[in-house]
Design a protein around this nucleic acid. Structure first.
Length: 439
DNA sequence: TCTGGGGTCCTAGGACCC
DNA sequence: TCTGGGGTCCTAGGACCC
């Protein structure tokens, strides 16, 4: 009869492939891969393609012959389609909790609280069925006491014979010995947050699976590696370190870059490419309602050919006043390009990066207009302003002087409690909007 | 020839994620 | 011959200042 909070990770199976199959049923039951820009690498694989041993990120030219011979189909990626289906999928998943974090194009965390195990599992089954039926994308569901455990459970749901058929895994519902066994069966490199380098190093220390890491001394992990891995180790024990981020803070950095189809040597081609990237970056900046102080231009020679002379210059310019204007940013980017361009190299990639962003000042003025708002008539105006601010900031939180962090919903609740009077608690100070770390 | 200590800021690079 | 693009955080080391 325990009432505990659990994290649920829901993600689309072979998401890009599943999206393509929706509109081309002929792709079912065949090996399918979706390729990255310029048809370079495999970025998504159907189960049939995985069974052929094709790894994530494999350059397509390396497998093409064998793949086509086996009846495989390779598709260029269509991100507009994936983004659209993602939005639909996320909204259906969102019906299963008040608290949802959209973690990536195909992954979403939920929080479930107060269910008994029976209800948890019924809910997981229902969620999978509904997403499949309404959106057409098959999903896996993993449930755990922390995000890291939910991730691990999700992996079991997809890969482990004990869970694969049902498509979900509820770790908190298992008995402790069973659970330890599944942790033990999870290789260290499969744990969320542990990549190739760290898993190698961990293995030399005798930490080979998730169970080993959960039992390792966290402070030793911290001193040997860093605080991130220490958190991972704690999370595997069920100690909550990573909170749900329902409204992630605005981006700190915007990158626009592309590989060329071939190799490029002349400045004029680079100028064209850099102008395009600068314009695209500026557009993203405006979507965020931000301005950038820093602009970086970079070039790359192809990294995979050791015979090719390597050169990857980069220069960062500080703008006198922060800008989001296409012309200003493009001109700055071209100045940067002139500074780093050298003749005699064959360039493979170019890009523009924006940094040190600030938000709209206009909002600040609006905000102060309402300082101390206390009448019923001002309520709607206040809430509308909050909406605008939230939208501009890309988050749904405000700092209030007397109450700490609050949300629009909480603010409405307070208003009702105060019987039509807005309390001075709504006085807001722009500079004190904190980072959401935990609840 | 000997040669302090501590703070901040910035950048580069390394690790990870999808 | 052909190898993506867009993010995050952390650490180390150098410059600079007092």
């Amino acid at each position: 009869m325990r009432s505990e909070r659990h994290f649920v990770l829901v993600d689309g199976n072979n998401f890009y492939v599943s999206c393509e199959r929706l509109f081309r049923p002929a792709l079912r039951h065949r090996p399918v891969v979706v390729l990255s820009n310029n048809d370079g690498c495999c970025v998504a694989r159907s189960n049939e393609a995985k069974a052929m041993g094709i790894q994530m990120g494999t350059p397509y030219f390396q497998i093409r012959k064998a793949f086509e011979k086996a009846g495989g189909i390779a598709l260029s990626s269509n991100y507009t389609l994936y983004a659209d289906l993602s939005t639909r999928m996320m909204s259906v998943i969102g019906q299963y909790s008040d608290r949802q974090e959209i973690y990536s194009i195909d992954e979403s965390f939920l929080e479930w609280e107060g269910f008994r195990h029976f209800d948890t599992e019924r809910m997981a089954i229902d969620l999978r069925r509904k997403v499949e039926r309404w959106v057409g994308i098959p999903v896996g569901v993993g449930i755990g006491e922390t995000k890291t455990l939910a991730k691990l459970a999700n992996r079991l749901a997809k890969k482990h014979p004990d869970f694969k058929a049902q498509g979900y895994c509820n770790l908190p519902g298992l008995d402790p010995a069973e659970r330890q066994r599944y942790l033990e069966e999870t290789p260290i490199g499969e744990v969320w947050g542990i990549g190739r380098r760290w898993s190698q190093k961990l293995e030399t220390l005798g930490i080979r699976n998730a169970r080993d890491l959960s039992q390792a001394d966290p402070s030793r992990i911290r001193s040997t590696f860093n605080v991130i891995l220490e958190r991972t180790a704690l999370e595997l024990r069920g100690v909550l370190c990573l909170a749900l981020e329902e409204s992630p803070p605005p981006r700190q950095q915007i990158i626009a870059s592309r590989s060329f189809g071939g190799l490029v040597t002349d400045l004029e081609s680079l100028r064209q490419s850099i102008s395009t990237h600068a314009a695209r970056a500026a557009e993203k900046l405006r979507e965020d309602g931000s301005r950038a102080h820093l602009l970086t231009v970079f070039l790359h020679t192809p990294p995979f050919n050791p015979k090719e002379p390597q050169y990857h210059p980069q220069v960062t310019l500080r703008l006198k006043t922060p800008s989001r204007d296409t012309l200003t940013l493009t001109q700055a980017a071209l100045r940067g390009l002139e500074a780093i361009y050298r003749e005699g190299f064959r360039y493979q990639k170019a890009g523009v990066m924006l940094g040190e962003m600030t938000r709209e000042e206009r909002i600040q003025t609006d905000l102060f207009e309402f300082e101390g708002a206390a009448s019923r008539g001002e309520r709607d105006r206040l809430l509308a302003t909050m909406d605008r601010i939230n939208q501009a900031m890309g988050r749904n939180t405000l700092w209030t002087a007397s109450q700490g962090l609050t949300t629009k919903e909480q603010a409405q609740g307070n208003w009702r409690m105060n019987r039509g009077n807005l309390s001075p608690a709504y006085t807001t100070r722009w500079n004190e909007i904190p980072k959401v770390v935990a609840r």
